[in-house]
Simulated assay, not measured.
Amino acid sequence: MTWISIRILITLLFLVSQDLPAQNVIANVQVETKQLSKTNARSIFAMRVHQWSDGTPIKVFVLQDQNPTHNEFCKSILGMFPYQLRRIWDRQVFSGTGAAPVVVNSEQEMLNAVASTEGAIGYISLDNADTHEGIQMIKVDL
């Protein structure tokens, strides 16, 4: 390889490795948490953590399993496949040890549900999510 080819390859790899703002984790504006680790985000969306640090119950909202935004969220933010998350929820529901999250049909419904529910968390792909009243962005350390 020539030096120019190597520089082009390195540049392309750098651009591809950048965090793309495809998904935004959102929460109700009253949630005090502003940042989550990937592990904490995974625990919350796997329905294993039930309260925020201030004791407020967490209400998890997700899109339908076949939704492309849900698929990308699971892979890029949680680091798992959607079917793995579904298995966790199903195991908890069928064993009686937990509950599944609330499933919404669209990103607009997600915005409305999170904005109107105390302690709510969800995700969307919209770029203008921070302009919606009643929600805030939650940074996830990847």
Rank of each mutant, 00 (worst) to 15 (best):
L85N: 11
N112V: 09
R48Y: 02
I44P: 07
M1E: 06
I8W: 04
G122D: 02
A100G: 00
D54G: 05
E107L: 03
Q66K: 14
Q92W: 00
F61V: 01
D127E: 13
L126W: 12
I26Y: 05
S125P: 02
L20G: 10
T97R: 07
L12C: 04
L12N: 01
Q108L: 12
S5N: 15
V16D: 08
P57H: 07
S17R: 07
L9K: 14
V25K: 02
D19N: 11
L12W: 00
Q35I: 05
H50K: 15
S95D: 15
L111N: 11
V16N: 09
I44A: 02
A129N: 05
P21L: 10
L142N: 13
K59Q: 14
S43E: 14
G122H: 01
I135P: 04
V25N: 02
D54H: 03
M80A: 07
A46H: 04
D90W: 09
L142S: 14
I44T: 04
T69D: 07
R7E: 10
E32K: 10
S43C: 11
N128E: 13
A100R: 03
L85G: 05
R91G: 08
S116C: 08
N28R: 00
T2Y: 01
T97A: 03
F14A: 14
Y123V: 09
N67R: 04
A129W: 12
N40R: 15
A27W: 00
Y83N: 13
P101N: 06
S37Y: 01
Q18H: 10
G55T: 07
I124H: 02
Q66L: 11
V16C: 02
E107D: 03
V103I: 15
N105M: 01
Q51K: 08
V49M: 10
E133P: 13
S106I: 14
Q92S: 12
Q51M: 03
S106E: 05
M1Y: 09
I135W: 06
K38V: 11
Q92I: 05
R7V: 06
A120N: 01
K34A: 09
V104M: 14
L36V: 10
W89E: 05
S37F: 04
V102D: 09
L63P: 03
S95E: 12
E118I: 00
R7S: 09
L85K: 13
T117P: 07
V60R: 00
G79L: 12
V49A: 06
T11L: 15
K139M: 13
M80I: 15
K38F: 02
Q51I: 02
W89K: 01
